[in-house]
Write a protein that binds this DNA or RNA. Structure first.
Lengths: 234, 234
DNA sequence: GAATTGTAGATTGTCGACAATTTACTTGAC
DNA sequence: GTCAAGTAAATTGTCGACAATCTACAATTC
């Protein structure tokens, strides 16, 4: 809780380190496929490309390493992690473990503020599904729903883990988004969770999140398998 | 899985970057209390102290940041995180979520190799309890049991999260170790888990781990509360 | 005297350069 | 032709230095 000056409505400017910006750029490049999986990411090349020195690039890479997007080998540098079917399965197993615990906590400390935020986010999901054509925006909105749940759990550690797997999660949601012809389906799949939470029914909430996640898991794996097959046969 | 040369039993020398060594040094300094919670850790001071430049110190600090031991503020540097009762509670909630999922997986892909490793580790726990007086060794052995479980779950992400909270976990186990007069108690508390796993009884295994962790949680919180009171009253 | 502004010292952020290590290629022996 | 050793280019690891930013204290104003 950084206390905000009550005064004039100025907007905070930038105020985010170069390292964070580089990290964001890099992760976008990876999930969008510009940087091929397994590819070495050369510090000097990236640094030159972005017009910065190598130091911030190195730190950004270390950041991404802890979020599992890149892997580092001593004296050999950083490499883009390749997502495999197993890795995606593992990711969803982790998400299931975390988000199950999150909804259990959410039922306990449910309040108007959280209800408001989650309801608004489901509405937002519907809005972007109908008004926005951009897939990326829709994915962002989906992520945000889950992030809000983690935030509302009042356990920063859950949020921390979520953010750490966020990029892979985003990547996987992107796969889902490409699958659904009707984007409103994405919005709809979140409603049972919210309803169970509203009713403060722990059992129902847990089974709702279990269903939601394993459904997503199934879709992502299927979609990914297709992608892989298409790649190898070419 | 780094493939090891099948040949002669040479021991790998050093081969771990300066960054990792600095990170290890720093974390030891923190959990041992040499660096007070909330204290700013100055890059230049640490660098001078260890006789290295600031670059590896910065990267090490970023590493510790992702493991939650230190917190960074832009343009203000790194600070030692203070452990609070809430933070410990949150930590155990996370561990419960993860390790519950881990034992469920362990029951599924149980095999002789895993059984061998875990049994040996319980034996080791007994050995260090009777033969070794050093608390740190005992704590290390306790950690190793849980680490082995994560490894055996065959989901690297679980292990990754475990390692990320490992230092705080270690810190908390240290508190437990100081509490038990009889160190063999630590070894004994792990046996029910191993037994349930051996029987491949998922329900029993989950309840065993739940009991084990919440018991540890209770003890740690109690112990920590005492520590805090002792500190404030002085 | 309290609050704001100004200034000096210290600390972090970023950079370019050099040393250590790895990689790719060439050369040579069998 | 294959394998080994040797060598040069490229890349990472580390460093010291300078710029940007923050902190603490002094000066100024009301």
């Amino acid at each position: 809780m950084t206390q905000t000056q009550p005064s004039s409505g100025f907007q905070q400017i930038d105020r985010e380190g170069l390292v964070q910006r580089v990290a964001k750029l890099l992760s976008k490049a990876i999930i969008s496929g510009k940087l091929a999986p397994g590819a070495r990411l050369s510090e000097s090349v990236v640094a030159r490309e972005l017009g910065v020195s190598r130091a911030p690039v190195r730190e950004a890479a270390r950041l991404l390493e802890s979020s599992g997007l890149v892997r580092s080998e001593p004296n050999r540098g950083f490499f883009v992690r390749q997502v495999s079917i197993k890795a995606l399965n593992d990711l969803y197993e982790l998400r299931l473990a975390i988000e199950t615990a999150v909804v259990e906590r959410l039922v306990q400390n449910w309040n108007d503020e959280i209800e408001e935020a989650l309801s608004a986010q489901v509405a937002e999901l519907h809005r972007v599904a109908t008004e926005e054509a951009d897939i990326f925006t829709q994915v962002e909105a989906d992520m945000q729903f889950h992030r809000l749940m983690c935030t509302g759990s009042d356990n920063p550690k859950f949020l921390q883990v979520f953010e750490q797997v966020a990029i892979e999660t985003e990547f996987s949601i992107m796969l889902i988004g490409q699958l659904y012809d009707d984007p409103t389906r994405i919005a709809e799949t979140h409603e049972p969770i919210l309803e169970a939470l509203r009713a403060r029914d722990a059992t129902k909430a847990v089974s709702a999140i279990r269903y939601h996640i394993s459904e997503a898991q199934r879709i992502v794996i299927d979609q990914f398998r297709l992608l892989e097959e298409g790649k190898t046969s070419t």
